[in-house]
Design a protein around this nucleic acid. Structure first.
Lengths: 155, 155
DNA sequence: GCAACATACATGACATGTCAACAAACGCTA
DNA sequence: TAGCGTTTGTTGACATGTCATGTATGTTGC
């Protein structure tokens, strides 16, 4: 590290905008979600990921990986959601260590009721303020960054 | 709510990419920050905001507003950072209720040492994977969303 | 100048997330 | 098939953030 390559004006604007947007957008969307559906963001994420899984069930490990959560976090959160009847744990047939997380009826009802309102919220606070071109570019840009972060680094 | 306006493919890609990028980027940049400088992201944010303030000092309320943090969160976090000698509280001359948060020498050294490494990390994991055009557009797009979220809503 | 309301901050109880340690089962190899 | 490193999941201690409340000070209208 000789001279740091500081951010120029354009980069600084993008970085601050991104950070600021995240805080505000997240807070607003989560407020909407809590008000409309009584779910927290983590609740929604778990239900959503499970509802996309085959048969509405998934090994804890795999689910955590897909969500980019730690196993520990997911295990704790599943325990709480289990108390509320949104998901259950089942033993795994082919692996006695395994815990399969399963969406309950109530969980399915919850996510199905929440999803349209959530999408509407995301649309209102996010997409409605972007041009089509910006949305396309955002897809490209975020995927480029994600790709770099998930591809094993040769360094 | 009649029919929900679901996200089309392009929107879905952008939204998932954005969420995913945030999780991965945040985790990686924070790991770098902790390893290189022994600071957490909240630590860095407080130090950074304070170092940009006039005379390296700021009323707690105002600082919390700038950072988009709750007063409570900042108060708690300042208490912890105070124990580590990074900031101090001073009484406010013109308002006896006030608490002025002040950057200490050690705090200034910490942020000055951390900043170049942090910028390098952000550059490596984020800007290095984006085109100039994407960065410019990201500035525009995020500011449009931020603007909508901070402008009082007529609804 | 004082009653009533608003503002700034601290705090404690609680919810959530992290990290390290543990236990149990898996699966490879000798 | 016994031994041993690996994988999966749980757990408890702890760090962090939220929310409601308390307290002191400021401010406004009479």
């Amino acid at each position: 590290m000789t001279q740091p390559r500081w951010l120029d004006e354009t980069e600084d604007r993008a970085w601050r905008g991104y950070r600021r947007m995240f805080l505000l957008l997240n807070a607003q969307v989560n407020r909407d979600l809590a008000r409309d559906s009584g779910l927290s963001e983590p609740d929604y994420d778990v239900l959503s990921a499970l509802s996309e899984a085959k048969n509405h069930r998934c090994r804890l490990k795999k689910l955590a990986e897909r969500m980019l959560w730690s196993q520990s976090r997911l295990s704790h959160h599943v325990t709480r959601m289990q108390h509320r009847g949104l998901v259950t744990r089942e033993d795994c047939a082919d692996d006695a260590r395994g815990a399969t997380i399963v969406l309950t009826k109530a969980g399915r009802r919850a996510i199905e009721a929440a999803a349209p309102l959530h999408v509407e919220s995301v649309r209102r606070h996010f997409f409605d303020h972007l041009t089509r071109e910006q949305v396309e570019m955002l897809g490209d840009a975020t995927h480029a960054v994600v790709n770099a972060l998930t591809t094993p680094n040769p360094s």
